[in-house]
Design a protein around this nucleic acid. Structure first.
Lengths: 213, 213
DNA sequence: CGTAAGAGAATGACCGTTCATTCTACTCAT
DNA sequence: ATGAGTAGAATGAACGGTCATTCTCTTACG
């Protein structure tokens, strides 16, 4: 016979428990998008997940633990996207494709309202702030590295100083794109892709003239 | 002697009432930055304004009216900034100067956490959404107009299609800058200004080569 | 029968808002 | 001058409701 704690573990972390957890997280994400982290109530989340409020507490210690789980999942998606960015051959299209209409909703997306809410929460909650800062630094570093890497190695061969500046602007551009997604969800996709192609052509050119005064 | 209603008017909408209103709004803004629109309570706002909770309701109908007032003030600042943008001779410096450390706090600033919170709220509350959308459209139109205007008239002389694209990217860049301000409040100001000079030199050049495929 | 899963009412704290009351400052008849 | 009268300003306790969380009880299954 199994030891009690082993059985406990097998059960708690079993397939059912995992399914319940993701069910709760999906419901919570939907509610957070619709109402925000603080305006969404546990009762609403429970209703959305089609279970009783009390049951949620079997799988999560508190509401803020759920919020943190949602945020960390979003940050993980950011990490994944960045990791696969420098592999893509058409950068503009790849970036434009991360701009989503609000209708479609896979679970590997950076949801614009969650991005905004998370960024705001990061300025208040130290735990969220730390998680966001870690990913943020990693992304900025990765951007700079890709811009500096030699062209024959898949980079853009920019000198360090220029790479640092352009990585910063690129980062602002991407984050601004998420803001835009929240504000203009039905923005013309063709225009966006074309505009991105234009600006990336400028920013990632082999070498460009120095800016005027 | 004044008529009673005249005195009444002078009193209600008098200097005192106005002062109380701004006192409440300043306290509310502080609380909203610190805790967010929904997590900040009327009790906290009242305490910050050094008055009783009940008194606030003499000057504002509800909490959401206060939230809306704060948001509309922020949007007004955006309008002002945009209006005076194309007058500035050093665009990069002007933009970089709207990037604020969290310590200094005049009341003609676009506060980064409020920007995020407002953008998120706009996706939920129709009234906020409408106010934000109005300003948003105006800003994007103004950007495009400036990029299209002839150089001798203070514009940048870009053809319409290119102006549309670059205005969109410029907008994303600015909004991204606010996200960055929230995340990296102590970002090196020199680097920022230099990076902005670089990218604006590219985006606003008299005419640039078309992007590679 | 025993044990985990689940439901849903109970709990206490706190929310936005209201209201009866008190305070303050000013008018004016004496 | 002074004290009564008064109206607006301000208070803070109270209210109904809702919040996150806990508890008790039932159900289902091995």
């Amino acid at each position: 016979m199994m030891a009690e704690d082993a059985m406990e573990t097998a059960c708690r972390s079993g397939a059912r428990a995992a399914a319940q957890r993701t069910r709760i997280l999906q419901a919570a994400q939907k509610c957070f998008v619709e109402h925000g982290f603080h305006a969404a109530s546990m009762a609403t989340i429970a209703q959305t997940a089609e279970m009783s409020p009390g049951l949620i507490y079997r799988y999560f210690r508190s509401k803020s633990e759920i919020i943190l789980a949602i945020i960390e999942r979003q940050l993980e998606i950011v990490r994944e996207r960045i990791g696969s960015l420098h592999v893509a051959n058409d950068l503009a299209a790849g970036i434009a494709d991360s701009f989503h209409a609000p209708t479609d909703c896979h679970d590997d997306m950076i949801i614009a309202p969650l991005f905004l809410e998370t960024s705001a929460e990061a300025t208040r909650d130290p735990q969220v702030g730390a998680a966001v800062a870690a990913v943020d630094t990693a992304v900025r570093t990765e951007f700079t590295r890709v811009l500096m890497r030699a062209r024959e190695e898949g980079g853009y061969g920019l000198p360090e100083e220029l790479a640092t500046k352009r990585a910063l602007m690129l980062l602002c551009l991407f984050e601004g794109l998420k803001v835009r997604e929240a504000r203009e969800p039905h923005l013309d996709h063709g225009l966006l892709e074309s505009a991105l192609g234009d600006i990336l052509g400028l920013l990632l050119a082999p070498q460009s003239a120095e800016p005027a005064g």
